[in-house]
């Protein structure tokens, strides 16, 4: 119970605020509860299959075995694998950094690393399905198309702007950190 309160205090406080507003200004209070209810029902009906997909992707896409195949000189295959691992991911962008660190340790190229981070941030499959459901399929598809081009451009720019010594340092940071996550 205490844990529940701690996690949901913001929601409960907002709900209480909504009720107080409803008592003072019934019109706004009722309208907001109506909008909240409608949105909640709509969103909660879409979320279960998306999270099931997220769980399946997370368990079946074996990242550790894939990382082996994306070292320097892995060419197109390495790029594709980097993209795929990023797209099948679950979790916010910062959750990709520990994995990127493992990739660097195993000798992934800088270009592939930023393809991976880009794919993780913009083309995660569970996220795209929810984007299509809430903002429309055309919006999602067009934004996805632009993002894929953008990911490659950003990876190319990163690869060019980092000098040789910067890259050496990048590998050094991650080799020293020692902890494999």
């Amino acid at each position: 119970m205490k844990k529940f309160l701690k996690r949901y205090w913001m929601f409960l406080a907002l709900l209480a605020a909504n009720i107080i507003i409803g008592l003072l200004l019934p019109e706004i209070g009722l309208k907001s509860i109506e909008i909240t209810k409608k949105n909640a029902l709509e969103m909660l009906s879409i979320l279960p299959p998306i999270f099931i997909l997220l769980g399946l992707l997370d368990v079946w896409v074996e990242r550790e075995t894939m990382i082996k195949y994306m070292g320097k000189g892995s060419g197109m295959k390495g790029i594709l694998i980097a993209f795929l691992i990023g797209s099948a991911a679950a979790g916010p962008l910062y959750a990709s950094f520990p994995l990127a660190s493992v990739m660097l340790k195993k000798g992934s190229s800088i270009f592939n690393i930023f393809i991976f981070v880009g794919a993780w941030s913009a083309t995660k499959i569970p996220m795209l399905t929810f984007e299509a459901a809430s903002l429309g399929l055309p919006f999602m598809l067009i934004r996805l198309g632009i993002s894929i081009v953008g990911i490659f451009i950003i990876a190319i720019l990163m690869n060019r702007s980092l000098k040789e010594e910067d890259k050496v340092e990048l590998y050094d940071i991650n080799n020293k950190s020692g902890e494999v996550q």
Binding site: Y8, F11, E34, N39, A40, L56
Partner: peptide, 26 residues
């Protein structure tokens, strides 16, 4: 394992998700 993962990820966003829904309504 994947179902447990799905449930955990779902439950994980719920506090923020519900709070944002109320904010949107207001």
């Amino acid at each position: 394992k994947s179902l447990i993962k799905a449930w955990k990820a779902f439950e994980n966003i719920m506090p923020q998700f519900l709070a944002v829904l109320v904010v949107i309504g207001l």
